[in-house]
Each structure stands twice: as structure tokens, then as C-alpha cells.
Nucleic acid binder design. Sequence first.
DNA 1: TCTTGACTTGGAGTTGACTCCAAGTGTTAC
DNA 2: GTAACACTTGGAGTCAACTCCAAGTCAAGA
Lengths: 128, 128
Amino acid sequence: MMIAEVSKKFNLSQDTLRYYERIGLIPGVNRNKSGIRDYTEEDCRWIEFIKCMRNAGLPIEILIEYVGLFQQGDETVEARKELLIEQRNQLVARIEDMRETLERLNYKIERYEQAVIPAEHELKKLED
Amino acid sequence: MMIAEVSKKFNLSQDTLRYYERIGLIPGVNRNKSGIRDYTEEDCRWIEFIKCMRNAGLPIEILIEYVGLFQQGDETVEARKELLIEQRNQLVARIEDMRETLERLNYKIERYEQAVIPAEHELKKLED
DNA sequence: TCTTGACTTGGAGTTGACTCCAAGTGTTAC
DNA sequence: GTAACACTTGGAGTCAACTCCAAGTCAAGA
């Protein structure tokens, strides 16, 4: 699979794909005889995984560490598991934070909906 | 309230507080006779609100817009409401994304838990 | 053969969000 | 009164995460 296809498939720019490879965020991609990247199915699974994790806010640094551990083989299974658990816990916390903020936004919106044409002194209240 | 207190109260650096004021992310703070910032209760409520929203990932640019609208008075109530609704919708989407990623992480961790000492060919599977 | 176009590389530039710094001023402690 | 300290300002520097660029290579079509 050529870089152009992969780029479209995952909606990541070619520059981003090359950048991810360069910094070790995805394992090195094979080149064909003329030096052009040829992505395997496994490469694509990595990219999809990384994209998903990045989307959820996991830092690149941590993901590079994970990929590195993976490439070192079976001795790192425990370390990888711990890394994932740590990130899972942080994700749970972030989601909870966001859920609280969401409720707050909903409350604020509701108040805006009730106040059809609010008077000046009521506007202040809207910022509670 | 002096900047040092506010900084501690909200766990934001003094630099960040000054930066937020400079870019219009919080309305201008009054100074005392000697030119030193003196935060009112209302200033604090803004800071707390902004911190909460930033935490949930709302971009600074949007929040500046919101503050700007607020300062323009009652004509902007509708615009503010729409801005909040748009941000609420995006937040809902982000939370849903993160929830999905969380499930994926949980699944991965479970698999790591089951594979006590996995053989080489099983390691590949762990990356599904 | 010549050009077009998709790719390659290493490195520089950008963006968002801070974070730090230098130079200056006003209040407090001795 | 002078040293220490907390603050002021405008501007420069930093960091993560891309994003863009110049110069070069290679395969395919007119």
C-alpha cells in the first residue's frame, strides 16, 4: 500500500505519516526496490491504533515508549501492560473531568434558554 | 485578592494568569493605587470557568470570543448561547471518542492479563 | 528523450499555549 | 535609608506536534 492510500484511509497527512515513522511512533515501514514506502497490513493496524490513542490524548512520548517496548519482544509484556493501565487510568480521569464540564455547559445553556431577553442584572447571573 | 493568592487558589502560574488577561481570555483585572492587580470575586469566577473549559479542551480562541461577546452586553446573548451549544456538541463527541478508546484499552489490558507468558506468535495477536 | 508527477530525504518553519526574562517600581522590614 | 521582595511591563524563548520546503530520484507516458 502506497503512502497516498494510507494517508487517505486514515485521514492523516503524508507528512504526519512520515513524521510518525521518523520519531519511532510506528515501526519502520518497508521500501520497495525504488525506495518508496510500502505499508503492510500490520503497519496499517499500528497507524490506526496510534491514531486512536492520539485522538484520546495519549502523549506521543508514551506511545513511542510503547512501540519501543513492543519491538523489544516478550520480556516487555509486563511493562507494556503497566503502561497501558497507567494510561487507562489517566484516560478515565480525563473523561470524568470532561463529563463534569459537559454538565456545567448544559446547565449554562439551559439558563440561556430560560432567559429570553434577560435584563442586565440577570446577565451577571448567567456567568455563575 | 493578590495574584499570588489567585495563582495558588486555581493552581495556575502567575504568568498564565497575566497571559490570560493579556490575550483577553479573562476580562481586564483592576489595579490598586500602586498598579498591582486586585482580583474581584467575579474575576475569580471567570478564571475558574476558563480553567474548567480549558481543561475540557475548549480552544483558547473560542473562549476569547465568548468573553468578548459577554463584554459586548445583552445583544450577544443568542450568539453566546450558540457558541456554547456548538462547544457542548464537540465535547460530547470527544467524550464519546475517548470512551471508545477506553474500551479498546481495557480490551488490550485484559488480553495482556490473560497471556501470562505468551509465546512469540501470541504476541502479535496482542496488537489486534 | 523529455517531462510530469509521486515519491524520497533532512531540515526549517508554524501553531497553540504557555513560560521565562530583564528592567523597572512600589511597599515592608530593619 | 536601604535592602529585600512582590509585583509591573513588553518581549523573547520553549515545547509538543505537526507542516512545509528544497533538492533529488525514479517510473511511466507523449
